[in-house]
Structures are given as structure tokens and as C-alpha cells.
Amino acid sequence: MIGLGEVQLFILYILPVFITAFILYTIRALRGPSISDIVLAVDSMSYDLAAFLVILAIFFREPILIGTAIVLALWAYSLDIYVSKYLEKKEMGE
């Protein structure tokens, strides 16, 4: 029977892969040449960060920490839409 200790140990082993991925995402988001590159990088980083937050909530054994991931995913999408509407040279209400 797999207890919590094995799951926590697995999450600790899988942690450096996520950290390396986030470092590379942040580097691309900080030195992207155009606006679209930065927005795409921060968008992908937000989605992966949502998955990472859920995994950390399993590690911390706190069910109240789950609800932050869904909020992060939804508002990163809204950032996409705002910047797309700005780039298409439209007003914000159309």
C-alpha cells in the first residue's frame, strides 16, 4: 500500500525538472524579442504553474490550496485576449 511518504518523496524527486523548466520559461519571457513572444511565454508558464501548484498542494496536504490553480489559468487566458485585442488595433469594448 502506497502511503503519503512515497508520494511526497516522488514529488521531491520530480521537483528539479519543474524548476529547470520554469527557469527556462522565465528566461524566454524576459528576453523575448517581440511582444507576442513574451505573452506566449508567460501564458505557457502560467498554465504549467497551475499544474505545479496542484502538485504542491498534494505535497503540502492542504485541500484549500487547490482553488488558486483554476484562477491562474482563467486570468492568464484573459491576458492573452487583452493583448490580442491591442495588437489588432481595436478598442477594448468591441
Partner: peptide, 11 residues
Amino acid sequence: ETTPSRPPVLV
């Protein structure tokens, strides 16, 4: 050592 601190919400 392995028990993390908790958020201040009583579940």
C-alpha cells in the same frame, strides 16, 4: 522536519 506550516483556514 516534515510537517509544513499551514494556511490560516480551518478545514
